[in-house]
Computed example of a mutant assay.
Amino acid sequence: MTDQELSIARGGVLLHDPYAVAIDEGVAVTLLADLQVRRAIARGEFDDLPGSGEPIDLPDQHDPEWWVRSIVQREHIALLPPSIQLRKDDAALDGRLDEMSDETAVRREIDDFNVRVVRARYELPSGPPLITMPRDPDATVQAWADRRAARAERGRQAARVDDPAPRRRRRRFRLFRSR
């Protein structure tokens, strides 16, 4: 018998089975969370929370983007116009390049910076004018290599100053006797 035939046999009223309804994951999680909160309230777990019964400190005006502002403030995110951000990136680029030890990674970083500068040149200006220019990859890589060589030389000189006379190591030979 089909469902309609069963309902007609029971007096013409179509009975609804609540367990036959499909529930997606979001609704199921919401129902479970609501059930857990209701049980915790019934047990009295929320009775002694600090600040209960006190008024909530709300601003005078409603800000629909309050959560974005709180994330920016909490994470110390700086939202700058592209021209200012590119100036900061240009000033910090040599420091980032000096941390790299591979020339291909240095060239990739320079190419990424140049792509951002060119893209910003084609966008409508929002903020101060863009004065940052793309970097010449070959000249920047050469400057990186020169700074790297100078750091290595300073390290060698510092090692020489710390150890003025190299000590000769004595070689120790063991004689193995056969037993």
Rank of each mutant, 00 (worst) to 15 (best):
P134E: 09
P82T: 08
K88I: 11
S101C: 04
V72G: 02
L79S: 08
D146S: 03
D102W: 08
G53T: 05
R38F: 00
Y122A: 15
V72S: 04
L124A: 15
P134N: 06
R119Q: 14
P82D: 11
M100F: 01
V27F: 07
L93E: 02
A92H: 09
R87C: 09
E123V: 07
Q36S: 09
I110Q: 02
A28F: 07
R119T: 14
A150V: 05
R121Q: 14
R121H: 10
S83A: 10
D48T: 11
A145G: 07
L97Y: 01
A120L: 04
W67L: 15
P55C: 00
L80Y: 00
R151I: 05
R107Q: 11
I41S: 10
S83Y: 01
T140E: 05
H76W: 11
E153L: 14
R43G: 06
D112F: 13
I56G: 01
F46Q: 01
A145L: 13
G127Y: 02
R154V: 07
T132S: 08
E65R: 14
D48V: 08
R119A: 15
D136L: 04
M133E: 15
P125Q: 14
R116M: 13
V106M: 01
P82K: 06
D102E: 13
E54F: 10
Q85D: 11
R148Y: 01
S83H: 01
A42W: 05
S52M: 09
V117T: 08
G53V: 02
Q142P: 01
D102I: 05
A120I: 06
I77M: 05
R135F: 00
R43T: 08
I56Q: 02
L97F: 00
E54I: 07
S70F: 10
E75P: 00
G51A: 01
R69I: 01
D112A: 15
P55V: 08
P137F: 04
Q36K: 14
A28L: 14
L49R: 05
P125K: 12
A33T: 12
T30G: 15
A92K: 12
R39Q: 12
L31I: 08
D90Q: 12
D63Q: 07
S70L: 10
R147V: 05
A105P: 04
A143R: 09
I71W: 13
D63L: 07
